[in-house]
């Protein structure tokens, strides 16, 4: 879909829903941590070096490096 954006482009405290995760070495880890299609994700904190962001996902807070979060595509509402 055209209006899917990368998770790194989502402003803090904005809820979005995962549309797709591009193939990458850490995709399996992301899956099992709850980053699956249709899941709601909320960015919460940016770290001091701006290299990683902490996200709320399925009840937990998970920090992801931006280079990994880039592979996650999200949309404003559930597809």
């Amino acid at each position: 879909m055209d209006n899917a954006i990368s998770l790194t482009a989502v402003p803090i405290n904005t809820a979005v829903f995962i549309y797709d995760i591009k193939k990458s070495p850490c995709r399996n880890r992301l899956y099992e941590l709850g980053f699956t299609k249709g899941t709601r994700v909320i960015p919460l904190h940016i770290n001091p070096g701006k290299s990683a962001v902490a996200y709320f996902v399925k009840g937990a807070v998970i920090a992801l490096r931006n280079s990994d979060a880039e592979n996650i595509y999200v949309m404003g509402d559930k597809a």
Binding site: P25, R29, A52, A54, V61, I62, A63, L64, R65, D68
Partner: peptide, 12 residues
């Protein structure tokens, strides 16, 4: 090696 990833839970 390849560039590394960082995925870590921030516990309550």
């Amino acid at each position: 090696g390849e560039g590394s990833s960082f995925i870590l839970e921030l516990p309550p």
